[in-house]
Simulated assay, not measured.
Amino acid sequence: MQNKSQLLKGVLEGCILKIVKHKEETYGYEVVTEMRSFGFGQCTEGTIYPILTRLEKRNSLKSEKKESPFGPQRKYYSLTEEGEKELIEFHSTWLEFKDFVDGVFKNYEGGN
């Protein structure tokens, strides 16, 4: 699939928003670890950090630097009100598209 990266980008954004909401406050590497635990093995810091930055610039996330017990300060992210709205919209759209795609594949089961 040629546009796999575009599809993945939107899905990653939605998943990151959900992880941040669940954690209430988290830092970048913890998001990477969570994504990998759900099967997004291709997720690296180089993939996740630019998305976190983009979400912060869009005002979907806010950040605060805090002391870390393991070295320099960490940037902790939390969901904003705008991010909450974006997460709800993403989930609704995801469920709708998932149903459409599932319907097509179920209807044409057995024929590649």
Results as ranks from 00 to 15, higher is better:
Ser5Gly: 02
Lys21Gly: 14
Glu109Trp: 09
Ile51Cys: 03
Ser63Met: 04
Thr33Arg: 15
Leu55Gln: 07
Gly39Lys: 05
Lys75Thr: 10
Lys57Leu: 14
Leu55Cys: 06
Lys106Gln: 14
Gln73His: 13
Gly10Ala: 08
Pro69Asn: 08
Gln6Thr: 13
Lys9Thr: 08
Leu61Phe: 15
Gly10Met: 10
Leu79Asp: 01
Thr33Val: 15
Lys23Ala: 10
Leu61Gln: 01
Leu55His: 03
Leu52Ala: 09
Tyr108Phe: 14
Pro50Arg: 10
Glu24Ser: 08
Cys43Ile: 05
Gly14Thr: 07
Phe105Trp: 06
Phe70Gln: 07
Gly83Asp: 11
Ile16Pro: 01
Glu109Met: 04
Ile48Phe: 08
Phe40Arg: 00
Trp94Leu: 15
Tyr49Pro: 00
Cys15Lys: 02
Trp94Tyr: 15
Gln42Gly: 13
Lys21Asn: 15
Phe70Asn: 02
Lys66Cys: 14
Glu25Trp: 02
Gly103Val: 01
Thr53Lys: 14
Thr26Asp: 04
Leu95Trp: 00
Leu7Asp: 02
Arg74Ile: 00
Cys15Gly: 08
Tyr49Phe: 15
Val20His: 02
Val31His: 06
Glu56Ile: 00
Pro69Tyr: 06
Leu7Phe: 10
Glu25Lys: 09
Glu82Thr: 12
Ser37Glu: 05
Ile16Lys: 04
Ile48Pro: 02
Gln42Pro: 00
Thr80Asp: 13
Thr47Ala: 08
Ile48Asp: 02
Lys4Met: 12
Leu7Glu: 01
His91Ile: 08
Phe90Asn: 12
Glu13Asp: 08
Phe90Gln: 05
Glu24Val: 05
Lys21Arg: 15
Glu67Trp: 03
Leu12Lys: 07
Leu8Trp: 00
Gln73Cys: 03
Leu17Pro: 04
Tyr27Thr: 01
Thr93Arg: 13
Gly103Lys: 11
Gln42Ser: 11
Leu17Gln: 06
Glu96His: 12
Leu55Thr: 03
Arg54Pro: 00
Phe90Trp: 15
Phe105His: 09
Thr47Trp: 08
Phe90His: 14
Ser5Pro: 01
Pro69Glu: 09
Arg74Glu: 05
Thr47Glu: 04
Phe100Leu: 14
Ser68Leu: 06
Gln6Tyr: 12
Leu7His: 09
Gln42Trp: 11
Thr44Gln: 13
Gln6Val: 09
Val32Asn: 02
Arg58Asp: 11
Phe100Thr: 04
Ile48His: 07
Val11His: 14
Lys98Gly: 03
Tyr77Lys: 04
Gly39Ser: 12
Glu67Gly: 07
Asn59Gln: 13
Gln6Arg: 15
Lys65Ile: 03
Lys4Gly: 02
Phe90Gly: 05
Ser78Trp: 13
Glu25Tyr: 03
Arg36Val: 10
